[in-house]
Amino acid sequence: MVLLTLMAAVTVGVVRQRNLFGVVILGGIYSFMMASVLMVLDAVDVAMTEASVGAGISTVLMLSVLYLTKSRESVPHHTPLLPLVVSVITAGVLVYGTLDLPPFGAADNPVHLNTAPRYLEKSIEETGVPNVVTSVLSSYRGYDTLGETTVVFTAGIGVLLLLRGRRRKRKARPARPERGSAK
């Protein structure tokens, strides 16, 4: 609860802050607190990913983007009324959706009754891996993880293509005035 309150405070800070450097750092802090929340919920693997990706790599990438752009957010030209209404409605729908969810952590929830018991019982016997998370991720659900790896691959290729394309264009741009000056 304390963590969630702190996270809310950080979010308010992100919204009010105009200095983008501060926003990036606050984003990193938010990620670390999210990782702590996930630790409290016993999702150590996810917490680790959040800490390394959310707080580590993204912060570094955001900082290197910041180096390329201005470090102050420009003052918005339009009123924030429409986005506010949209987000309030979305949040309301999401909260309404959570009302239908089964109680958190109850043993007879559908997720715990479908395939999970079989994984838990047979994991060591069938794969010899004591950590069930690993055996589920890479053996029982190998397809899903292959899909995830492909997503990372596709996203990486996409980002690289976009950035490379820009660079070529910029190289082409100075060439044109040169031709013009020669005339």
Binding site: T149, V152, L163
Partner: peptide, 26 residues
């Protein structure tokens, strides 16, 4: 199973680290 999981995890490691490093470089 152990060998398969090990190899597959190495595949994930290679793609993820390669992507991150390549994006950082660009």
């Amino acid at each position: 199973q152990l060998i398969g999981i090990l190899l597959v995890e190495i595949g994930v490691l290679v793609t993820v680290s390669g992507t991150m490093i390549a994006i950082f470089y660009t």
